[in-house]
Each structure stands twice: as structure tokens, then as C-alpha cells.
Simulated scan of single mutants.
Amino acid sequence: MLRASRKQELKERIFAQSIKLFKEKGFDNVTVEEITQACGIAKGTFYNYFPKKEAVLLHLAVSQLESVHETIQNNKNMPDLKQQLLHLFSNLFHQYAEQPDMVRLVVSEMMRADMFINAEIRIIEKFRQALTALLDDAKNKGQLTTQAVSEDIAAVLTGVYFNSLMIWLSAGTDAIQIETLFQRHFDIVWEGIHPGGAVKQ
């Protein structure tokens, strides 16, 4: 377990150092050799964690997806579905608040490069699948009685989330403000699938 923890720490260190270099010089101008020199590791060690430089950028999205699964697992016994969903999205927005420059850089680079499109689509699909499974489970538990298809609800929630992300990126809005905006939009979706269930302000 300790060894696994150290491996994860090294991976995060490589990621953080890479992002620092990308911010300073631009993604296209940074080589794997520069990253390994900055981290004090061999090239082989870098490739043990990231098959290529581009994979460093995908690490954030993969980490967020892992965080989503972990949050869903930790909150699976929470009786209030709305709070469970809001808590799930809130965790993602808090990552924006903690390291806004890093998140902006990673997302901007991934949107700019065609090589990331397929990988991004796969991650978004897995995110949608995780939400669908959560909604199906809520239906089975009687927490959600809508006739709407879980996949459709998950697609709408995913769209609302990524719309908030794009607004945050383009407007430079504070992460807390964008979470508030997301919650307002979420309430509209929630009222559609759970009439009368929206929290009154």
C-alpha cells in the first residue's frame, strides 16, 4: 500500500512539474527531457507513468473521473438524491477553485489539439455512464420516480456541467460563482424530473 502511495505521489509530482513548464513555455515547446530534468527522474520513469507527453494533460480528466466514481461510492447510502448529485458536482468545482490556472491550462490545451478529441469523448461518455448508473440506482431505491430515461437525464446534467465549465474558462469567472450558476441550472433540470422537488430560495 505504501509503495502504491509513493507511486501516486511521484505521478502527481510529474504532472505538477509538467504543468508548471507548460505554463512557462507553452505545451508545444516543452520536451519530455525537460520534464524529467525538472523532476530529477530518468526518461524511463516518466514513461512508466505517462506513455507520451500528451498523456500528462489527460491525467486531470482521468483523475476527475476517478473522483466521480469515488464520490458516488462514498455517498451511495445518502437518502437524498438531489444532495448526492450536488455534492458530486461540487467536488469537481472545488478542484477549479483550488488550482484554477492549472485547470484552465489543461482544458484549453485539450480543446485546442485534435489529438485529444477521441480521448475526451471517451472520458465524457464514462462520466455520463457513471451518472446513468447513479440515477438507475436511485430509481430502484424509489428516490426518483420520473419516467424519463436515466441516460437522457445524465446527458442533460453532463451538458449543464460542461456549459458551466466553458463559461468559467471563457469569462474567467470565480469557481464559486460558476458553481452557483450550475446549481441554478441544475434546479431547472431537477424540477423537470422531480416536480416540486426544487429547494425554495
Rank of each mutant, 00 (worst) to 15 (best):
L2T: 15
R3M: 04
R3G: 03
S5H: 03
R6T: 11
R6H: 10
K7I: 12
Q8D: 10
L10R: 13
L10N: 07
L10F: 09
E12D: 11
R13T: 15
A16L: 07
Q17Y: 07
S18V: 01
I19N: 01
K20S: 14
F22K: 03
K25F: 10
K25T: 07
K25I: 07
K25Y: 07
G26Q: 02
F27Y: 12
N29A: 10
T31C: 00
T31F: 00
T31E: 00
V32Y: 05
E33M: 01
E34R: 12
E34S: 09
E34T: 11
Q37V: 08
A38L: 08
A38M: 06
A38S: 09
C39V: 03
G40Q: 04
I41Q: 04
A42Q: 11
G44H: 05
T45K: 08
Y47R: 05
Y47D: 05
N48K: 04
N48G: 07
F50I: 05
K53I: 02
E54Q: 06
L58W: 14
L58H: 06
L60P: 04
L60N: 07
V62P: 00
V62L: 04
S63Q: 02
Q64E: 14
Q64R: 13
Q64H: 10
H69M: 03
H69K: 08
H69S: 05
T71H: 09
N74E: 12
N75T: 10
N75H: 06
N77H: 12
M78E: 10
M78R: 11
M78P: 02
D80P: 00
L81D: 06
Q84V: 02
L85K: 07
F93C: 02
E98I: 08
Q99M: 06
Q99L: 06
P100M: 05
D101A: 08
D101S: 11
V103N: 07
R104K: 15
L105C: 01
V106Y: 04
V107W: 03
V107G: 02
S108F: 06
M110N: 08
M111R: 08
R112M: 07
A113I: 01
A113Y: 15
D114T: 01
D114R: 05
D114I: 01
F116A: 00
N118S: 10
A119I: 00
A119E: 12
A119Q: 13
A119V: 02
A119D: 14
E120L: 14
E120P: 03
E120H: 11
E125K: 15
E125Q: 12
F127D: 08
F127Q: 14
A130S: 14
A130Y: 03
A130T: 01
L131I: 11
L134I: 03
D136P: 08
D137S: 04
K139T: 09
N140P: 00
K141N: 13
K141G: 09
T145S: 15
T145E: 10
A148C: 05
E151P: 03
E151R: 13
L157A: 13
G159I: 12
G159Y: 14
Y161Q: 07
N163R: 14
S164I: 15
L165R: 11
M166P: 02
I167V: 14
L169A: 03
A171W: 06
A171D: 08
G172M: 10
A175C: 08
E179Y: 15
L181Y: 14
H185I: 00
F186V: 09
F186A: 09
F186C: 11
W190R: 13
E191W: 03
I193Q: 10
H194Q: 10
P195V: 03
G196H: 02
A198N: 05
K200E: 13
Q201M: 13
